[in-house]
């Protein structure tokens, strides 16, 4: 049984931490002229109209697993498409050299990495999005192992978007991000960034800039895996 109280606590803790980060970012661009913020690279004029509808649909109990998977992919696709310096090239593409990829994103210009706070810039132009909208099931170690392998093979930054994570899955991501240099050569810019649908829900409901959220999630995944407490 889901502990709603602790779920809500986790959500509000996440929101308050994210707001602190956003406030600091906003201060920099207010004070220093010439600083480019995530606001400058993200288009949200309609207030996440499409994403709100899809998130609402995702809450329905009678959805089958295929539709649940599709919904999450659509949400993530739509959110990434709003980012000015990224180009979503494929969605749910089965025949790639990396196997089936839910979301293939190409960066339009290397400055995209600068905005995301990935300095020095990764050499790859590819970003992968992996979506797992499980019903009553958590992301397991095996899912993460597969995703890590894909990230290594594509030498790419990967966002793993799931419902909930088992402790083993979280530990595996932490281990990968901490020791990737010793696992394989050319690991620069290859990171696993885990996020949850609950986080996306908070971002959309509060009309928070999704790109700022991605920057936050990268920061707290590559640095001591602080993000783990919100997963």
């Amino acid at each position: 049984m889901i502990n709603l109280e602790s779920e809500n606590q986790k959500k509000s803790l996440f929101l308050s931490q994210l707001q602190v980060f956003l406030e600091r970012e906003a201060n920099y661009s207010r004070v220093y002229e010439g600083v480019t913020s995530c606001e400058d690279a993200f288009d949200n004029e309609d207030g996440y109209e499409k994403e709100r509808k899809l998130l609402q649909e995702n809450k329905q109990d009678n959805l089958n697993s295929n539709r649940k998977g599709e919904i999450l992919e659509e949400i993530v696709f739509s959110l990434f498409s709003r980012i000015a310096n990224l180009e979503v090239v494929n969605r749910n593409q089965a025949k790639t050299s990396l196997g089936q990829i839910d979301l293939q994103v190409l960066i339009s210009d290397k400055s995209a990495y600068d905005i995301l706070g990935l300095i020095p810039r990764p050499s790859s132009d590819l970003i992968i999005g992996e979506c797992k909208n499980f019903k009553g099931k958590s992301i397991e170690l095996e899912n993460i192992e597969k995703a890590c392998w894909r990230s290594c093979k594509g030498r790419s930054l990967q966002f793993f978007i799931g419902t909930k994570y088992t402790q083993a899955a979280i530990d595996e991501i932490k281990h990968f991000n901490s020791y990737k240099q010793t696992i394989f050569l050319g690991s620069e810019g290859v990171w696993m960034v885990p996020i949850t649908i609950d986080m996306i829900e908070v971002v959309v409901e509060n009309n928070i800039n999704f790109l700022s959220f991605l920057k936050w999630s990268i920061k707290y995944s590559i640095n001591q895996m602080v993000i783990a407490q919100y997963l």
């Binding site: 920099y28 220093y32 480019t36 706070g117 300095i119 020095p120 690991s187 920061k219 640095n223």
Partner: peptide
Amino acid sequence: LDFSQETLYVLCESCELEYDTTDILVGI
């Protein structure tokens, strides 16, 4: 910045402090 090596910290010679790379301000 030296882009040849992956690092999580950048030294600012003026402040004489190391900053987390994700805290670096960028201007396009």
